[in-house]
Design a protein around this nucleic acid. Sequence first.
DNA 1: CGTATATCCGTGCGGCTGTACGGCTATGAG
DNA 2: CTCATAGCCGTACAGCCGCACGGATATACG
Lengths: 132, 132
Amino acid sequence: MAPRSTSLEHDHPVDPGRVVQARERLVSADDASRLASLLSLLADPVRSRILYALDLVEELCVGDLALALEVSEDAVTYALRILRTAGLVQNRRDGRVIFYRLADNFPEPLLEHCLRQLIELSEAAQRIEDER
Amino acid sequence: MAPRSTSLEHDHPVDPGRVVQARERLVSADDASRLASLLSLLADPVRSRILYALDLVEELCVGDLALALEVSEDAVTYALRILRTAGLVQNRRDGRVIFYRLADNFPEPLLEHCLRQLIELSEAAQRIEDER
DNA sequence: CGTATATCCGTGCGGCTGTACGGCTATGAG
DNA sequence: CTCATAGCCGTACAGCCGCACGGATATACG
């Protein structure tokens, strides 16, 4: 069903210049959509902690990951399924045990650069909120 | 109800050393949870594009934002409500029109540094996927 | 005052997401 | 061969999320 275009929906810009300027240089809907997918992938405590754990110790099996993070094995399995599908982790079978590691082409700076900054950012925001 | 600890749930680590090592230096559940909140906030095409638009042109009203992004005003209002609640944007009333801008304490590097990298990353991943 | 406009708010709904459970598969031990 | 273990998969369910709609509110204009 069509959006709420029943009546007039703000036809004339209030500030046409800025609208045009924003439109021209704006992040495309496609880029934003891909970005959102990537961020959603990282926006889960179990998934991000798994990535950090694998960054620390190179290789871990499912059960040990659950122990290290103190979450259920089901949660780890589910998280790994998603990370695997996204191509962020690889696995290797050794007997009955399956070891996971970061994918070969895993973007290095992501964890230590980008996410680390965001963690500090969210801590700062938290403090500001607590002070109110 | 308790998780699936009905039977034994992998009591002995396969590689105790690595489990301990991961546990000690791992991102805490709290940090990961806060990080997830922040990432969820950014993991929406409308919200991220609004932030980029405001970064570009300083100030825009709701209707013009909808025009610039080519989405419904409802969607913009909803997105702004969330960004406002999170303290990422501020507004200013001028007559019937309400102008939005990035909050004073908006973390500068976030958009141009951090997210820009992630956009490129997601583009690269997309290309790899397309080649298969 | 009455009308039109810009935006917000409450509500409802469809869709997605994370988890738990039962059951399946594959491997190894006896 | 039989049994136990590590992990996966399909399913079901509860919770959340984003959007559209109706209606409210505030401001401007005549």
